[in-house]
């Protein structure tokens, strides 16, 4: 049994390939920890517990994210956040949060296998995404520190500009990952020439 053990990312069956021509590079960052955190931002006990465990208050400003040490906290809704932890740490962070939040109206749910993260990099990264994403990705409108949930083709995604370079990180759902990668590879053909 143990000899069978392996972790498989949602994109295990997709040949990622090299970026051609001016097409952006698409890279999967596998096996990060993803925790769905919910609580009332007006509840000081909730905020205090989160600060205690994650070292930062969850962002109250919609469509922003904060980084705190190894953790990143993305705003998903007025009482909902996505906490990203390094690989393998989601269990212990969830346990710490649950402990700190004991008795506080809140929710901490592990969704680590439900999501994966792509980095899309290169001068046509925004153009590739804009192929079928209605969000305004102009660097003056969508800057590092911001994030947004929107759609890409016919699936949902959470997107944030990368701090370095001309790119974005895109968090997508496991079951849609194959579809979205095939879609991106198809859309990338437009940038492969010239």
């Amino acid at each position: 049994m143990a000899d069978l053990f392996q972790l498989q990312s949602p994109l295990v069956n997709i040949e990622m390939g090299e970026a051609k021509g001016n097409a952006p590079e698409i890279r999967e960052i596998t096996f990060l920890g993803y925790l769905n955190l919910r609580g009332k931002p007006g509840n000081t006990a909730f905020l205090a517990a989160v600060i205690k465990v994650l070292g930062a208050e969850p962002p109250i400003e919609p469509n922003t994210m904060v980084e705190s040490g190894d953790y990143r906290i993305y705003w998903l809704g007025p009482d909902e956040w996505l906490v990203i932890t390094p690989t393998g740490q989601q269990g212990q962070v969830q346990a710490k949060l649950l402990e700190a939040l004991d008795g506080v109206f809140s929710s901490v749910v592990d969704n680590s296998s439900g999501l994966t993260l792509l980095e899309i990099n290169g001068k046509n990264a925004a153009a590739l995404i804009a192929t079928d994403c209605p969000l305004d990705l102009h660097p003056g409108k969508f800057k590092p520190g911001q994030c947004a949930q929107t759609r890409l083709a016919k699936a949902g995604m959470t997107i944030a500009p990368l701090r370095n370079g001309e790119g974005f990180e895109v968090i997508i759902r496991r079951s849609f990952a194959d579809y979205l990668l095939l879609w991106m590879q198809d859309a990338a053909v437009a940038f492969e020439l010239a």
């Binding site: 083709a153 016919k154 496991r174 579809y179 095939l182 198809d186």
Partner: peptide, 20 residues
């Protein structure tokens, strides 16, 4: 229609972890 064509891309195809 753009690229939303064919069996692969007309509509999302969702797969489970055991699909392969």
């Amino acid at each position: 229609a753009g690229q939303d064509l064919g069996e692969r891309l007309f509509d999302p195809i969702r797969k489970t972890a055991m699909h392969a």
